[in-house]
Amino acid sequence: MTDDQPASRKVGAFDIRVVIAGLIGFYGVVLIVMGFVADTAADRAKTGDVNANLWAGIGMVVVAAAFAISARLRPVLIE
C-alpha cells in the first residue's frame, strides 16, 4: 500500500448480511424451541404429522449460518 491509496477496512457489523443472519437466526431458534415445547397432536394433525415449527426453525438457522459464513468469507471492503 502506498501513500496515495487509502486504506481499506471491513464493514463488519454494518454489513446487511450480518443483520439478516441475526434476525433469521433468532426467529429460527425461537421456532426450534417452540417445536420442542409446544408440539401438540392437534398441530401435527394440521401439518400431516410433521413438526412444522421444528423443521422451519432448522431451515432458518441453516440459512442464517449461510449468510454469516458468506459475510465472514467475502467481507465488504470500504475505502
Rank of each mutant, 00 (worst) to 15 (best):
R74C: 09
G35T: 03
A71Y: 01
R74V: 10
V37P: 05
T47G: 08
F67H: 02
P6L: 10
D3Y: 15
T2Q: 14
V11C: 04
W55N: 06
P75I: 00
I58E: 02
V61R: 03
S8E: 13
G22E: 01
A71T: 00
I69H: 06
P6I: 08
A68T: 03
I16Y: 15
G12P: 01
W55V: 08
G12K: 01
L77F: 06
G59S: 05
A52G: 10
A64R: 00
R17V: 03
Q5C: 10
V76G: 07
F26K: 07
I20A: 14
Y27W: 08
G48R: 06
Y27M: 07
R17P: 02
S8C: 11
V50C: 13
A71D: 00
A64G: 01
T40K: 05
V11I: 10
V37I: 09
G57C: 02
Q5N: 13
G25R: 02
D49H: 14
I58S: 02
Y27A: 06
F26S: 08
N51G: 06
D43M: 15
L77A: 05
T47P: 04
L73I: 10
G25S: 04
M34K: 09
G12D: 03
A42Y: 14
F26A: 10
V76C: 08
V18P: 00
D3Q: 15
E79R: 14
A42P: 11
N51L: 07
A41Y: 12
W55G: 05
P6V: 08
W55E: 07
I24T: 09
M1T: 14
A52K: 13
D3M: 14
I69K: 07
Y27T: 05
